[in-house]
Amino acid sequence: MNTVIIDYDAGNVKSLQFALERLGVEAQITHNIDSISSADKVVFPGQGEAASAMEKLRSKGLDTLIPKLRQPVLGICLGMQLLCKQTEEGNTQGLGILPSKVKRFPNIVKVPQMGWNTVNHNAEGLFEGITQDCYMYLVHSYFVPITPNTIAQTNYAGAYSVAVQKDNFYGVQFHPEKSSKDGLRLLENFLKF
């Protein structure tokens, strides 16, 4: 199986690569269009600021490639947010795979949310075999509201999506590579799709 991690200078991909390695998968970190197109599984990470991340995707031609992918794609953190149509962060247009608009947490809570939060999920697919209300590690200031695409949610100034799915596209707001055994199980589930 050929798994790639999309490389667009978006933060800590080393830990992600190591996590996949623990599952026996040598993932290539690449921005090469052909390598990504022909991969069996695509991981789309992300950290940092949305507008500059979109700019980097555009400069590599990845903004038009990603929506066309037909193999399983997993967006992580900012990667999940960029699957959406729009984000309040820098009023940025995303990839538009999901119709959602990403919003900023209100200042009634600390921003960024940083730490382990309980995740209520649909108990299948990505979450198969993972305990209900498991803890996942989150670091973010913007969130995807609850939509028909939501497959897991948590609470921080209200309920919001921490995992979404549409067709072959999956997104998780938390960092599975930093979420101990449950996070690793989620990556394992994704690799089995």
């Binding site: 080393k14 996590a19 930093k178 979420s179």
Partner: peptide, 11 residues
């Protein structure tokens, strides 16, 4: 740091 990242699955 590289060795820690290879082993650890928490932040």
């Amino acid at each position: 740091v590289l060795k820690v990242a290879a082993t650890l699955d928490i932040p």
